Simulated scan of single mutants.
Amino acid sequence: MAETGPCEPWPVYWTCEVDAYSPELTGYAVSAATRILWALSGRQFGQCEVTLRPCAEDCTDLNAVPLWGWTAGYSMPPWDFYRTPYCAGGCRTGCSCTHIPTVRLPDAVSRVVEVKLDGTPMATGGYRLDGRSLMRTDGGVWPRCNNLARDDDQPGTWSVTAVVGEEVPDSGRLAMGELACEIAKAMNGVDCRLPPGVTQLVRQGVTIQYPDMGQLLKDGRTGLYLVDLFLASENPDGLKQRARFGNVDRVLRGLR
Rank of each mutant, 00 (worst) to 15 (best):
M1C: 08
E3K: 12
W10L: 05
V12K: 13
V12P: 07
Y13F: 14
W14M: 06
C16Y: 02
Y21P: 06
Y21F: 15
S22V: 10
V30N: 11
S31G: 05
T34G: 07
R35K: 11
I36P: 15
L40D: 10
Q44A: 09
V50F: 01
T51N: 06
P54T: 10
A56F: 07
A56S: 15
D58G: 15
P66C: 14
P66I: 15
G69W: 05
A72P: 01
G73E: 10
S75A: 14
M76I: 08
W79I: 08
D80E: 11
Y86K: 07
A88C: 15
G89L: 14
G94D: 11
C95W: 11
S96I: 03
I100C: 10
T102D: 01
T102Q: 12
D107F: 10
D107M: 12
V113P: 00
V115E: 12
K116S: 08
D118E: 11
T120L: 14
G126L: 02
Y127G: 00
R132M: 09
M135F: 00
R136F: 07
R136Q: 02
T137Y: 00
D138Y: 07
G139Q: 08
G139Y: 09
W142S: 02
P143V: 01
N146E: 12
L148Q: 03
L148D: 01
A149T: 13
D151S: 11
T161N: 03
V163T: 04
V164H: 00
V164I: 12
E167L: 01
D170I: 06
R173Q: 15
K185N: 15
K185E: 14
M187L: 13
L194E: 15
P195N: 14
V198E: 12
Q200T: 08
R203Y: 03
Q204M: 05
G205M: 08
G205K: 02
Q209C: 05
Q209E: 09
Q209D: 15
L217D: 04
G220Q: 14
L224Q: 12
Y225N: 15
L226W: 07
V227Q: 03
D228N: 08
F230M: 15
S233I: 11
D237F: 06
R244N: 11
G246V: 12
R253A: 11
